[in-house]
Design a protein around this nucleic acid. Structure first.
Lengths: 228, 228
DNA sequence: ATCTCTGGTGATCGCTCGATAAACTGAGCC
DNA sequence: GGCTCAGTTTATCGAGCGATCACCAGAGAT
């Protein structure tokens, strides 16, 4: 028996997907919708994006909240695909080079309208998953960076970074993050060369770290001086 | 004829305010409500906060959108009450001192749950007023800071800051701003001494600025060195 | 004491929302 | 060819939304 004209399949509204495909299509399009409209975006608008009717959603998700949770999972776990540990902790490469590459890769993953908007919307809802992510940035990125910086500067390792060190790292990290917010949320003009921005931010962070490391032994703060 | 027991007035729901008082009470409580719930917060919930009925809102505002606009006006203009120009441009005081004080005062004005949440919500809506505010930060704060920095470093004044300089200032500013987001939006633990955080951020920003100023004449980037 | 003006209420409209139940449909199996 | 079962639709519910209108009530002027 020959196939029933596959041409028609292209003309018809491509209904009748497999369950897995349909489900993941819901998550994908929901991410797009919620990124634009916030989580108040309607289930009918979502169905329209898929070319199906609204009740179909409930064959795949018990409630809208469950769909939202799926979106969270996808968005929050997406940028974690990168091999952070190896990249940051590979001491065969110069520290500066590692940091530059890490932030280029990391920002490639999260600097886009979809990710940043979902991240901010979920942050405003104050959910646990958001606190978890912030804690992870602290533990897996900033703490690791500080450890490598201390090692690079010949300082003794410590189990946990000091509050002042951590704050320095946070301000640095936040400054870079805010670049993405300015570009993709505020849609304000930014310096187009992202790598250059990261490089400049790294310059002043590393200089600040060295300065702090020295003044920590001094006890009193010495005025900073830069020599060309 | 004696007064009708004024004590009762205290027991009764204090209705019947003057038009101006009621109107501003609507704006105040609406700011609180929208800060928590987003602008999807309902007019009935708002009325409940005032202890009045929902239709009363429409005696004072033609629509919910008009109320929202009032909230924007209040929130966006609130931190502008400070005398920025004088503070930043008063060359009788050391630059470092001026910057420290400015950021302490500025963050006193905007680092609170209400302001930051309204700001982020409105930013996500992509309204003109938000772009206006970002442009104002650039023109009235960052450009002015850079001008003072150039003057302080003995560099020639320029009508507009270079893109690289501006980006440096933005990353610095964003790093400080993100401190507020971490504390009041994410409710994550932060270094409690805000003035210290600002001081540290200023240290590395000023060092970075000097470094950039020097390398601009060198053409090639000189490695940074910090002397205690 | 009565009138008036205005701040405030009760009832309700039309709409959209998330969610449910029952009916439909078409590809694969016997 | 008819059966089956999974993917999809049609119809609809109850709740909540922004908004409107007619009415109420109390303080101040006369």
């Amino acid at each position: 028996m020959n196939r029933k004209m596959p041409v028609k399949r292209a003309r018809t509204k491509q209904k009748r997907l497999s369950a897995d495909d349909r489900r993941s299509e819901f998550v994908t399009k929901a991410t797009e919708l919620f990124a634009e409209e916030g989580f108040g975006g309607g289930t009918r608008a979502l169905a329209r994006k898929l070319g199906v009717t609204q009740p179909l959603l409930y064959r795949y998700f018990p409630s809208k909240d469950d769909l939202i949770k799926e979106v969270y999972r996808k968005v929050y776990l997406e940028p974690l695909e990168i091999g952070w540990e190896k990249l940051l902790s590979d001491r065969s490469r110069p520290l500066r080079e590692r940091l530059q590459e890490f932030y280029e890769v990391y920002t490639d993953a999260i600097f886009n309208r979809r990710w940043l908007r979902i991240y901010l919307y979920s942050g405003l809802k104050g959910l646990d998953i958001n606190r978890w992510y912030v804690g992870m940035v602290k533990d897996k990125i900033l703490t690791r960076i500080l450890r490598e910086c201390r090692h690079d500067a010949g300082l003794a390792a410590q189990s946990r970074p000091s509050a002042a060190e951590l704050e320095l790292a946070w301000v640095f990290h936040g400054g870079i993050f805010y670049y993405g917010v300015r570009k993709y949320i505020y849609e304000a003009p930014v310096l187009e060369d992202k790598a250059q921005m990261i490089s400049d931010a790294l310059d002043i962070f590393l200089a600040g770290f060295e300065r702090m490391a020295e003044s920590a032994t001094d006890r009193r703060r010495a005025p900073i001086k830069v020599v060309g």
